[in-house]
C-alpha cells in the first residue's frame, strides 16, 4: 500500500505554547500576519525624485525617512541601469566623498551638500559619465562603498538596497526640500514626458535623417522634385 510521502517540513512546524499573563491568554505571534504587508520602504519612507537635466536627463530617488534621514538612490529608470554600470567612484576630483567622517549625535564633520553637489560619479558601459547629485541640501552621513568594488551589483539591487549615500537635512529645511523634489506622481508624469520628448526627438531626428536619406536618394534620381517639396 503506497504511503503518503512524508512532509519534509514536519519537524519544523511552529508549535504555539499557550501563555497566560495578567489574566490574558497571549495570542500566538503568527496571528500578527497580515495580507499585503508593506515593504520596509513603504513602511518608513516616502519616495521623492530629482531629475538631473543635463548633459542628458537622469532620474534619482530620495527615500525620505519619517525621521528625516534620506537615502539617495538611482531611480529605477536611470539610463545607466539599462546600459549597465562599468565603474563607480566617490572620488569626484576635488574631494573623495568616501573619506567622509561623522562624529557624535550631531554628525559633526559630515561634508555639507547642496542639492546639486556631486556625491559620486558612475560610468556606464557606454562610457557615459553620470555625476550623481546629492538631491537634498544636507550633511553627508554615510556612503555605500559597496558599489566601488562591485558596480555591477547596483544594476540588480532592490529598492533602498541600491542607496548611494545617507544624508541628513536640517529639520527646518525639510519642508522646502520636499517641495523642491518630485513626488511619485509628479515624477511619473514628468519622466514619461521627458521620455516621450526624447522619443519624439529621436523620431524626428531619424525622420530628418530618413528624409535626408530619401531626398538624397531622390536628388540622385531627380533633383527638381526635391525642390518642389521644399
Amino acid at each position: 500500500m503506497p504511503t503518503e510521502p512524508e512532509d519534509p517540513l514536519e519537524p519544523y512546524y511552529y508549535n504555539h505554547v499557550p501563555e497566560i499573563i495578567g489574566g490574558i491568554d497571549v495570542p500566538s505571534i503568527t496571528e500578527e500576519w497580515v495580507e499585503n504587508y508593506p515593504s520596509v520602504v513603504d513602511r518608513f519612507f516616502t519616495r521623492y525624485y530629482y531629475i538631473k537635466e543635463s548633459p542628458e536627463p537622469a532620474p534619482y530617488q530620495v527615500l525620505f525617512h519619517s525621521n528625516r534621514v534620506c537615502l539617495i538612490c538611482l531611480a529605477p529608470e536611470h539610463p545607466a541601469i539599462k546600459d549597465g554600470i562599468k565603474s563607480f567612484t566617490f572620488d569626484i576630483g576635488n574631494t573623495d566623498r568616501s573619506k567622509n567622517t561623522v562624529k557624535g549625535k550631531g554628525k559633526k564633520g559630515g561634508m555639507v551638500l547642496q542639492h546639486d553637489s556631486t556625491l559620486a560619479i558612475l560610468t556606464s558601459e557606454q562610457n557615459k559619465a553620470y555625476k550623481i547629485p546629492s538631491c537634498v541640501q544636507s550633511k553627508l552621513v554615510e556612503v555605500n562603498t559597496a558599489w566601488v568594488e562591485a558596480p555591477k551589483q547596483l544594476e540588480t539591487a532592490g529598492e533602498g538596497e541600491g542607496y548611494v549615500a545617507i544624508v541628513l537635512p536640517k529639520p527646518e529645511d525639510c519642508e522646502n526640500i520636499k517641495r523642491s523634489l518630485l513626488t511619485q506622481a509628479q515624477y511619473k508624469e514628468k519622466w514619461t514626458a521627458i521620455q516621450m520628448n526624447a522619443a519624439q526627438k529621436l523620431a524626428n531626428e531619424s525622420n530628418v535623417a530618413k528624409t535626408e536619406q530619401k531626398s538624397a536618394q531622390t536628388e540622385q534620381k531627380s533633383a527638381p522634385v526635391e525642390k518642389q517639396n521644399e
Binding site: F44, H65, N67, R68, V69, L71, K107, I166
Partner: peptide
Amino acid sequence: IRVLHRRPL
C-alpha cells in the same frame, strides 16, 4: 536608520 537622526553613526 530609524535612530540615526539622534544617535551617532
